[in-house]
Design a binder for these strands. Structure first.
Lengths: 232, 232
DNA sequence: AAAGGAAGTTAAAGAATGTTAAAACACTCT
DNA sequence: AGAGTGTTTTAACATTCTTTAACTTCCTTT
């Protein structure tokens, strides 16, 4: 079970249900942040990274629909599931038109919710078989196990650090790989010197990848790096 | 709307519901094959190509769960939605453990079913409506993923903040992007200094965009900014 | 028209990142 | 142990990004 731990943002004002859900999801190995109103939820969403949002529709300060539409502006892709007491048709439809992935009415069984979450994440993250070690990056083929980056005609052997860093970038394709995360994952410690070392490796990877103009490692100032690949 | 016509396999033994659903889905531009038992459904599945399966759980000859597990052997990836009269918990869970993507209990509204179908296909198939990271702004082409603004002949690389701000403006084309919203979304905090920083970025974006007189970032005093593009 | 706040503009300071080369380290072979 | 090889870190310097500051102009209200 080399499962990647998914992060869930739970917005639910009912204290009982909220803590119950958080506890349950934590137990099922989902890292769950629980907030009790829409405003807090939005602030969390900007600040941290999540794989799925679980939003109560009726909440104080900011309701679930408003929250969802704001989240959609920032991230048009993240899965959203609405929780609601009323099962009124209009509500359901409004939820889906905001790009919800699912809609579940209270009371519901924890297990059913869990299954619905899993059904969605199954689709979101690639096909089954979670732990990859080979990727296609534009015209390149990268084998993390063999530490080789093959381009058209070329074959570049990668050092351990180069390979680990590129692997992390691939795992976060088109998303920001946070500096601190990468530093802790590869260097075990995110101090100034390791950070500078990482910069050096970014430069090296960029050099290897520059033969394909559709592949870029973009810096996100103060945050980290993002590997982006264009389709032709 | 969507140009790609999706194909749906509908297995439902109730003649009334079956034909009603088929008619409705056809009207919504889904090519729908309707069969009235699980055995026929399986033969259809082998023979033709489908993008989604809509399976009644209780059917003569071969029930929906058996059918689904057989389908899963042939195709571990195709979206499956179960329809069922009983909403018993065990049933729901069994359905999901067979890799169902959704589960809907009768009676349900046609519209809700349609929205659920669309929610799933949105994830399954590639280009979805809301998922934009490129825009045309007058004569410019803006790629938020690559952080590049291309004009006629020019190519301006954007910084992270420039790109994020322009992206928000694009998402609110011809509408007011509220200061506070943008500040919270990009700077995480809407204090005085960040607001002044945002002003600086507005100036920068205006500079980049000034080659096209039809494109303007207009200030709405006390509210925010509005990106407007004139058609010729 | 005057006052005060909001927004426009520009420059500079400070922090983060890019780049290159040399130094330090780790490993193997003899 | 010492030479040789490849990897990683440190150092030094260049460049870019973001914020801050100072000053100007515009807008709204009275």
């Amino acid at each position: 079970m080399t499962d990647i731990k998914h992060r869930i943002l739970l917005a639910e004002d009912d204290e009982n249900l909220g803590s119950l859900l958080q506890e349950y999801l934590q137990a099922k190995n989902y890292e769950t942040d629980w907030v009790n109103n829409g405003e807090k939820a939005f602030r969390h969403f900007e600040q941290f990274h999540y794989d799925l949002c679980l939003l109560d529709v009726m909440m104080p300060v900011k309701d679930g629909f408003t929250l969802a539409s704001e989240i959609r502006i920032l991230n048009s892709d993240i899965p959203i599931i609405f929780l609601t007491a009323k099962s009124m048709k209009e509500d359901v439809l409004e939820g889906f038109s905001l790009g919800a992935d699912d809609y579940i009415t209270k009371p519901f069984s924890m297990e059913e919710l869990l299954f619905r979450i899993e059904a969605i994440l199954r689709r979101t993250k690639g096909p089954r078989g979670g732990d990859k070690d080979t990727w296609e990056i534009g015209t390149f083929a990268f084998d993390a196990k063999k530490q080789v980056l093959r381009g058209t005609g070329t074959e570049q052997k990668l050092t351990t650090k180069e390979s680990e860093l590129l692997k992390l970038l691939c795992n976060n394709l088109n998303q920001v790989l946070e500096r601190n995360f990468a530093l802790k994952a590869i260097w075990m410690d995110d101090n100034y010197f390791n950070a500078r070392s990482m910069d050096v490796y970014i430069t090296k990877l960029r050099k290897y990848l520059k033969t394909d103009a559709n592949v870029q490692i973009i810096n996100v100032h103060g945050k980290g790096y993002k590997l982006v690949v264009d389709k032709d």
